[in-house]
Design a protein around this nucleic acid. Structure first.
Lengths: 348, 348
DNA sequence: CTCTACATAGAAAGCGCTTGCTGTCACGCT
DNA sequence: AGCGTGACAGCAAGCGCTTTCTATGTAGAG
């Protein structure tokens, strides 16, 4: 029924070994022979059996990409960049690798399960994006898993994730703390003293680091933080909307709202507008990430740009062994403050 | 070095066959034996070899998803929905399948190459999203490929793509024409008579259908279209910005701009604002797709909502054989007009 | 004109798993 | 006591490819 290497070999009057060699392009094969084989391949419409190759050669052309949610442009952009670099068709790299995108939805179990699944596939490399979950047992399990993957020859790269020392994983970490601090300092510089903060979910490194940066900025300027000024939520618009309403309820005198990311910021803007407050005249708003839509918000969002595309591309190249890992296997990627219209000096 | 089934078998004092059966959970195995095997698996930290299973069983747990660009939420949302349904860890379906996301970038060659790669992996199913390219030779090549995939037992589903009769592929088509028509009729109803149209790239079914809908609406209301009112571009913000400037240059009396999609519409808004025009007082703007950010534009975008999540989920279920395909293998998915602030009656 | 060396091609041994078929018991009927 | 009948477990034959090692033909080298 299905055409196999042997069929091609028979038709081209050569041995299966030769066909394999023509197809894999290593090992010398006489031009005339190669041609005959290629012709047979074409005539029979032969397609290599991936699993069989993978088994025999003990290699795989699958690369895993772990994301929280691929529908979120934050992850989509990184995934796209990684994918472009791992060299699917059209990519520079020779091999034609396939990207396996795994939506963990932020769930520890799924994260682990996906890693096992990728290990089962003997993935050539795995790139983990997004913040890590701060739960000791889970972190230990993850580290063990990453270690095992690395030991099995799978290149592991963390993109926008804190390093995992001793696991053999290369880390490209976003400087969320620094970015958060710079952003809040900008607001303080504008004259704000009462700033609400909409944080992401608890127990996530990204959430904690951004919040720490924010607090460091407050502390550096001698601003005492009111616990009521911080609300935790999810990294989405809806959450931003609700959290903002909550903040307003707790302290209507807030002059600025700093959001965990741009989506949350957009939700905050909507909530403020719905509450009859003008941005930035009544309340300033700031986001984080600088996703493409942030510049189209009105007023445009003041935020911290994370070089998602660049970082993803670099992670992809490192995963493919096409770029030298950073010294020590760890690199910190800085964000850049984007000053735009959503934040201005407070009225009073 | 690496642990194999045989190692587990030896340790559990059973045959490899038994271990395999325990792991695959078909075939009866005595509880005590199963336990012994599981214990050995655990102790040896054994992970099944995917390629080997795939080869032996002639099945695969890979599902391909073809998208233009996963960084674009339009595709990201569909991919996410599909992925949730094909039953990775946490999914309802028993099997743990991995989603292979392929970025074609709209290139015909890559589309075809990726299909071959998926065929090589003996993918369990393939879902193609986004519009098709209208080039006869390419369409023929695609159809032949899809046919071959289907014949090989791979379930093929088209999500938001025109049907490909005779290929065995199930099609969930978006009614772009109907949506386009409804949208433009809404604008005409508001009193617009001079409408600019920013179309997507030529030779794409999506582009053509939306444009046809627009023109049908104009025709239905006896509005003669000026050829200068249509500009083609890409499906991105930048393109929308430039095209709008071009439209304004060609005919500054336009009272409305209809964009190929929401991203283009956002670019159009920016261009209009930068030209000193107010939305919607001076010029109305309309988009298409209703991506999440569209509601946060100011004013919120009037657009046509496409049920991306629902369609993706349905495509995923059909791909998994978990839902009956629509009668005839073809279903048309309608969009819904979202009337918001970016379109209003023209001044004059 | 023989000898060595190189360039190709083939034979065959797996890679690690699944599964049809063949036992082997133990049990419950008659 | 004899035997059909399940319920398990094992044997062994692949699945389709890669790759090591070996064989062969040919071309310079001496």
């Amino acid at each position: 029924m299905t055409v196999t290497l042997a069929d091609v070999a028979a038709r081209a009057q050569v041995s299966p070994a030769t066909v394999s060699r023509v197809l894999n392009g290593n090992y010398p094969v006489a031009a005339s022979t190669r041609e005959r084989v290629l012709k047979a391949v074409d005539e029979l419409d032969y397609v290599l059996n991936g699993p069989a190759s993978a088994l025999a050669a003990a290699t795989s052309d699958l690369v895993g990409i772990l994301v929280n949610d691929i529908a979120d442009p934050f992850f989509g952009i990184m995934a796209s960049a990684i994918q472009a670099e791992i060299g699917g068709p059209g990519g520079r790299a020779g091999g034609e690798r396939l990207a396996v995108v795994c939506n963990t939805g932020g769930s520890p179990e799924r994260e682990l399960t996906y890693l096992t699944l990728l290990q089962r596939q003997r993935a050539a490399a795995v790139v983990l994006t997004g913040g890590a979950i701060e739960d000791a047992p889970h972190k230990a399990a993850m580290d063990a898993k990453l270690r095992k993957l690395a030991d099995a020859g799978t290149r592991v790269v963390l993109c926008g994730r804190p390093p995992a020392p001793e696991t053999g994983a290369i880390a490209l970490t976003f400087d969320n703390r620094g970015g958060g601090q710079e952003l809040t300092e900008h607001l303080i510089g504008l004259g704000h003293r009462r700033l609400g903060y909409i944080a992401g979910p608890q127990e996530r490194t990204t959430t904690r680091h951004r919040l720490e940066g924010h607090r460091a900025a407050l502390a550096a300027h001698g601003i005492e933080e009111d616990p009521r000024w911080t609300v935790h939520g999810r990294y989405d618009r809806r959450s931003g909307y609700e959290a903002t309403l909550e903040l307003l309820r707790r302290d209507a005198s807030l002059t600025a709202v700093v959001a965990a990311n741009d989506s949350v910021a957009l939700g905050a803007c909507a909530a403020l507008r719905d509450s009859g407050l003008r941005i930035p005249q009544d309340v300033s708003v700031a986001g984080f990430d600088d996703l493409p839509f942030s510049i189209d918000a009105v007023p445009a969002l003041t935020t911290v740009r994370l070089p998602l595309t660049e970082a993803g591309a670099r992670a992809g190249r490192i995963a493919m062994g096409r770029e030298e890992p950073p010294p020590g296997g760890i690199a910190s990627v800085r964000g850049e403050l984007m000053v735009r219209g959503s934040a201005a000096a407070p009225r009073d």
